[in-house]
Write a protein that binds this DNA or RNA. Structure first.
Lengths: 306, 306
DNA sequence: TTTCCTTACGCCTATCGTAAGCATA
DNA sequence: TATGCTTACGATAGGCGTAAGGAAA
């Protein structure tokens, strides 16, 4: 096979139509340039130039080769730049998995900040529940997951990046909707709109633990797997529910939120933080950079909260 | 700039993920191969492999380089062939991309007719999914693609040349296998052997649209990306599927086909035509000639159908 | 201890530059 | 005779293979 140097030599001669001028452009002397062209011609079994000591012209075969040689060289240059950029983290593709809630409360901010710091990186977004995200990280089909801290998994690192807690959601005008918070005890006996065990296991378990901590039994009347559906029940006056505080931003009208309070140790139990997860052997520079953006950001928000 | 030998070395290592095996494939020993990779990495300022004495893995930068390197090498090979042909006065070389199905139902006929009209032209055949073919046409590494009409792409022209439609495939002896056709409604409730969304997106979407048009929901129990695999499911009695009518020719025993009928507008929805695609700036006379052969041929078949 | 990627080193091939050759206007 | 591509030749650089080194399971 010919070499790229031969193609560069050929393009230079084809453009200058003068071996001496082409050699000067390539910072070399004529003789080796002539030899490179000869080698290329022998390699291709084709005469590329019609040449005498007075003129140099492209043959038909040369006319076919010229655009192709330019394409090859262009593609090589483009590839070189692209690989450099990916290697330095300036470009690349990051596949981000996220839960439905994370997609609403965390993803927009992350993408906004990432877009500013990492123009040139393209993001592929994939909504999935937490456990599926862990599987995907293990398989390598997503780079970063925004999820709930369920079971630890070898090979996957997780870090909290957005503090969150459950708050009570009550129908507007309910007697407990005072704006001063409610205790779990006060919720005893009220119909509870509950997370389904299969699709929202994390929240199901969290709510059950909270009720147990207050020694009361939930009176579950409705199930749903998504926060908006639960809030719709509440807005319709069917009962109360517990949702992440971050859900306030996208609540329907007719719902009022109250902080949970009153119990020793409640704050430790009532943690619904969002975590970011990634493969521990992840080396993609763009991914590492995005992780820095997310985690720095979380530090700032943490400080702002305190 | 890197050299083509370095790209070849890189592709070999990336495909084998083993320096020793790659070196054997390249007919050389490991040490110089390692050195070529190191030189390439230094040249690109990028680590391409994550390697220890126990495993070799591509980095993100390596994953970007791999298809690009293949493109460069493909383009070089194609260029080499092309220049030789033109130089020797022979017509030229046509690289044909085709999907698995096109390779069975369309390619033999095209090659037979082209062979008669265009002796001296050599064909390079490359099986690839439709979207990859479009990429290759844009890059110039294939001349003509036989593919499904997915999204339009600037610079690439496509024309239908083989009409096709989906038909139902049922286990032999099934009560619906009457030879008089079936309606989609009749398939409601039967287990559907479905195309996978990733590798056979076109058919997946087409089947979903058909079911939606009949206001029924598919009961999907098995997934596969290739028609023969789906037909194998059907032959085994696991359910029914929808396949291009042209697949009849290479169906296993135990499968019976029924036309889809009964619904207004079904014929417009149920189109699975094969298209031919080429670069709009294509000037290769041999390519233009082959296009004429393919499209004339399609006119004949169209007339024969009506 | 085995596997397998990397480093070290001698040999050889290939490319460079200088100098001479030769064809054309 | 001047221009400019080609051939000849010695020096150097770069790649290959063999052999030794070193890290991981």
């Amino acid at each position: 096979m010919f070499s790229l140097i031969q193609l560069e030599s050929f393009v230079a001669v084809a453009e200058e139509l003068h071996f001496g001028a082409a050699a000067a452009r390539l910072n070399m002397t004529q003789p080796p340039l002539s030899r490179q062209i000869q080698l290329l011609e022998r390699e291709l079994d084709a005469q590329l130039f019609e040449r005498s000591s007075r003129k140099v012209e492209l043959t038909a075969a040369g006319k076919v080769l010229l655009p192709a040689a330019r394409s090859v060289l262009d593609l090589c240059n483009k590839t070189s730049l692209e690989v450099r950029r990916v290697s330095s983290g300036d470009a690349g593709t990051i596949v981000i998995g996220y839960t439905a809630i994370a997609g609403q409360v965390a993803l927009p901010g992350i993408l906004r900040k990432a877009g500013a710091h990492m123009a040139g990186v393209s993001f592929v977004l994939r909504e999935a529940v937490s456990v599926d995200q862990l599987d995907s990280i293990t398989r390598g089909s997503i780079d970063i997951g925004l999820l709930r801290p369920i079971v630890a998994r070898p090979g996957v690192v997780t870090r909290p990046f957005l503090e969150d807690r459950l708050v009570a959601a009550l129908p507007e005008g309910h007697e407990l909707a005072t704006g001063n918070g409610v205790s779990l005890k006060q919720l005893d006996g009220l119909p509870l709109m509950m997370y389904s065990t299969a699709e929202a296991r994390y929240f199901y378990d969290l709510v059950m633990r909270l009720y147990e901590s207050a020694s009361i039994h939930p009176k579950v009347t409705q199930f749903a797997s998504q926060v908006p559906a639960l809030l719709a029940f509440v807005a319709a006056g069917l009962g109360v529910t517990l949702v992440p505080a971050s859900s306030k931003e996208f609540a329907p009208s007719g719902v009022q939120f109250e902080e949970l309070r009153g119990q020793a140790g409640l704050a430790d139990l009532n943690r619904a933080d969002l975590h970011v997860a990634w493969g521990e052997s992840s080396t993609n520079p763009a991914v590492l950079r995005l992780l820095r953006v997310i985690l720095e950001d979380s530090d700032q928000e943490t400080r702002a909260d305190t």
